[in-house]
Amino acid sequence: MHTKEKNYQEQAKKIRGYVLKMVYQGQSAHAGSNLSAVDIIAVLYKNILNIDPKNPEWEDRDRFIMSKGHGAAVVYAALALKGFFPMSWLDTYYQDDGKLAGHVTKLNVPGIELSTGSLGHGLPFACGVALAGKRDKKKYRTFVIVSDGEMDEGSNWEAFLFAPYHKLDNLIVILDYNKIQSLAPVKDTLDLEPVADKLKAFGWTVKEIDGHNHTEIESALTPIPVKKGKPLFVIAHTIKGKGVSFMENTVAWHYKNMDEKLLEQAFNELNIKKEDFGL
C-alpha cells in the first residue's frame, strides 16, 4: 500500500476510535453523522488545510467550517490529533463543565471558526470569509462541509446563488451525502436529486467522489481553484455510520447511543483497541 494512503487510513482509524469513545462517554447522539464524515475530515486536516495549531488565529490560514454542527466529535478529534488542544479535552465532550459541546462550538476552542448546530449557517458565513479573501487579495481558501439534510435550508440556496456570481473560487463546499437525514432517507423527505445538475445550473464546478476513498477526496480538493472564477461543490457519497456494521445506513443511529457491548463490537469491527484510546 502507498505510504500516503496508509497514513490516511491510520488517521481515519484514530479519528473513528475517538469519535466512538466520545459519543459513548457522552452518551450523545449523532454517531452515524460523525462517522460518515471521518474520511473527509482526515484528509482535510492531514494534507489539505493550510493551518497552524500554534497560531490558530493566523490571518492567512485556510478556514474550515463544519456547517453540519452535529458532526462535532469528528472535528474535535481531528483538531486534538493536529495539536490544537490537549487530547484530554476529548474526555470532556458532552460533559458538565466540559471543554467541548455536542455541537461544533467555538467557546474557547482553538481551531473552530464558527459555532454551528443550527443548520444552514455555515455556508453564508463562509461566503463572507471567502469574499473578504477576494477583496483583501488573500490566498487562503474556505472549506465547508454541509450535510444532506441541511441542504433543505433556504439560506444555503441563497448562498449557492451568491458564490458563483461573485466568483468565489476560493470557496469549497463538500456535501457529506450519506442519504439519511433525521427522520428518514433524504429521498423520502425532500429529495435532493438531481443535486449535481442543480449546482451546475447555479454555476458551481461540481465533482462527485466516494467520500470514503482518501485518494479521491484528496484529488478532488487539489489544486484549488479547480476552475478559475468558480466555487467548487464536491458531492461526497458517504455511508452513515461508516465502519460500524450495526450503524451503517440506518436512520436510528442518527440518535442512538451505544452500551458497553456495542462499543466493544464497534472497536472490534474497526480493528482498533479500546485501550489505545484510554478506555
Binding site: 444552514g120 453564508p124 458565513f125 463562509a126 463572507g128 470569509v129 469574499l131 433556504g154 446563488l161 451568491f162
Partner: peptide, 24 residues
C-alpha cells in the same frame, strides 16, 4: 471595494456579514 449588494437574501446577507467581520 467596501460595498456589496447581497440581493434580496437577508439570511445570506447576515451570514456574509458575520464572515466578513470574522476577518476584522
Amino acid at each position: 471595494n467596501q460595498f456589496l449588494n447581497a440581493g434580496v437574501a437577508e439570511q445570506n446577507m447576515t451570514g456574509i456579514a458575520a464572515g466578513l467581520a470574522s476577518t476584522g
